[in-house]
Simulated assay, not measured.
Amino acid sequence: MSDSIDTVLFDLDDTLCRYRRGADEVLELAFERAGVGPVFEPTTYYARYREYLERADGFADFHERCFGDLAVDAGHDRADGIAVAREFREERDQRNVEALPGAAATLEALADEYALGLITNGLSAMQRQKLEATGLDRAFETTVFAGEDTAPKPDPEPFSVALDELGSSPERAVYVGNSLSSDVAGARAAGLDSVWVPRGTKTTNPEPRPSYVLESLAELQSPPWR
């Protein structure tokens, strides 16, 4: 890559923002507030998340359908799962989301030189809420809600859609994310170079291999492809 880069695309979750409380803690509170006990294990929710994301009709439908099915599978009433879903959404509101350190400053610095786009797996209602809560909602010229607007990452489709909307192309763009399996693999499938900003311990030999590895978002203010 070189100075021919004119577009920088970003992932959202755990790249630009994070939850103050994890889903495990929010689920525990939701079970308690619904008064039904732990009707399913958090791991089963994580394992089936993408399955329901791909076929849900809106934010509320996503959790109610998923939690209802998980409750039934565990031998409980569907109504118990739906009650948990409602409490879960209520608990995981805007106050539970925050921008990661350096996110706003990095986007502001890059906006002077590059077109900025967002590609995030998730329902639009849920992801827009996060963007508004963190104040990042006006930073992007285009946003693709993969899994709703297109196939979810790592499918190349959301990358192609974002680049078309920005009038760019794979060789003139990079994608920034924290996930090897979703972000780096998706960027590679779409023909883009990738910037991996891992949260937590870095893998010594990451696979798929990202084009660039950074310690923090702030490093992007001096782009590594220059």
Rank of each mutant, 00 (worst) to 15 (best):
E51K: 14
E51D: 13
E51S: 08
E54V: 15
E54G: 14
A56V: 02
D57G: 03
D57H: 13
G58R: 07
F59P: 00
A60Q: 11
E64I: 00
C66E: 09
D69M: 08
D73S: 11
D77G: 05
R78W: 09
R78T: 02
A79D: 13
A79K: 11
D80H: 13
V84W: 06
A85D: 06
R86T: 02
E87R: 12
F88D: 01
F88A: 08
F88S: 02
R89G: 02
E90K: 15
E91A: 14
D93M: 06
Q94N: 05
Q94I: 08
Q94C: 04
Q94W: 11
R95E: 07
N96C: 10
V97I: 15
A99K: 06
A99E: 11
A99Y: 04
L100R: 09
G102H: 07
A103M: 12
A105N: 04
T106Y: 07
L107S: 02
E108T: 12
A109W: 03
L110Y: 07
E113F: 08
L116I: 04
L118G: 01
I119P: 00
I119K: 01
T120P: 03
N121V: 03
G122S: 11
L123W: 13
L123V: 12
S124K: 09
A125R: 11
Q127K: 05
Q127M: 05
R128H: 13
R128P: 00
Q129S: 15
L131G: 03
L131F: 11
L131P: 01
A133D: 09
A133P: 06
G135E: 14
L136S: 11
R138C: 10
A139R: 12
A139K: 06
T142H: 06
T143M: 13
V144H: 00
F145Y: 15
E148V: 01
D149G: 02
T150E: 00
T150G: 01
A151Y: 03
P154M: 09
E157L: 05
E157Q: 14
F159H: 15
S160Q: 14
L163A: 08
D164M: 05
S168L: 07
S168I: 03
S168C: 07
P170E: 14
E171H: 15
E171M: 10
E171A: 15
R172G: 11
A173V: 14
V174F: 12
Y175F: 15
V176S: 04
S181Q: 14
S181G: 09
V184R: 01
V184S: 01
A185M: 12
A185H: 06
G186Y: 02
A187L: 08
R188F: 01
R188Q: 14
R188Y: 01
R188P: 00
A189H: 00
A189Q: 02
A190G: 02
